[in-house]
Design a protein around this nucleic acid. Structure first.
Lengths: 139, 139
DNA sequence: TATTGTTATACTCTATAACTATA
DNA sequence: TATAGTTATAGAGTATAACAATA
């Protein structure tokens, strides 16, 4: 009952492990930039020059819309994000990164998994294989 | 400036994306079992038949030890985890899953990334490659 | 009427600091 | 003195429900 039938499981067990490892690291990493894990997540989701309505951000975060208000309040008060009224529908507010937000996002994303350390040990072939596989997983 | 020099980055960018996708999914998934994301994390870290001192769990979660008290209080009150005094050092309390905890952990871990859906589309070779790569990344 | 975002409320998660009981 | 876990406290994250403005 050890490694008999569970061939397809090993891969996902490792992916789960990777996920939880990253999850444990995120608070420390985020605090380097005085961000919370959730704020990092928001920064990741708001791409530069791609305004996103608050409701769609809530969807992407898979959380209630009421959270987004406070989350964005805090990021906006730090000058990282802006609320912009939508032209089409005056109920909708779109979110966009400020220049400072764009810079911080880029810094955080480069920092979040340090490619030289772990990925540098992969051969070019392995990296290509990994990219191909992850693309399929995320499609 | 699209795919010129950033060969090693694509892999980690995808891993980051995978991580945040999973992070968004976790609250919904956890709530299926009336667990919080943090409780899922704890359940993942306490392996069956492997008691772990509270302090070491705090380390693994990369959080302050004071959190673990409340986190474990709630899991213990649901009968999923037990506190056991350590024989060597009476200050230390070790944590272990109850039978119900072991069962729930297994269910949650099977559910957390549904292997048939995304991983099932990978060939055996790809799965082996993925396992090999992830093992290196996590070592 | 239905929808977008906000507010009010309550609970969980989290860190800091002070405490206890052991060592 | 130092360490393991707890308690007290405060702030952030989260969901639910009720609300305002707009559609």
């Amino acid at each position: 009952m050890k490694s008999t039938k569970s061939k397809p499981c090993e891969a996902w067990q490792l992916l789960v492990k990777f996920f939880f490892t990253q999850r444990a690291d995120l608070p420390t990493l985020a605090s380097e930039f005085e961000l919370s894990p959730a704020q990092c997540h928001v920064l990741h989701l708001i791409e530069p020059d791609r305004p996103i309505p608050m409701g769609r951000l809530a969807e992407a975060l898979a959380c209630d819309a009421s959270n987004v208000t406070g989350l964005i309040d805090r990021l906006e008060s730090r000058g990282l994000v802006r609320r912009r009224p939508s032209a089409d529908d005056r109920r909708v507010k779109s979110l966009e990164l400020t220049p400072a937000g764009v810079r911080l996002r880029s810094t955080v994303l480069e920092r979040i998994t340090k490619p030289p350390d772990s990925l540098g040990r992969l051969s070019a072939d392995e990296q290509r294989a990994l990219v191909k596989i992850l693309k399929r997983l995320l499609d």
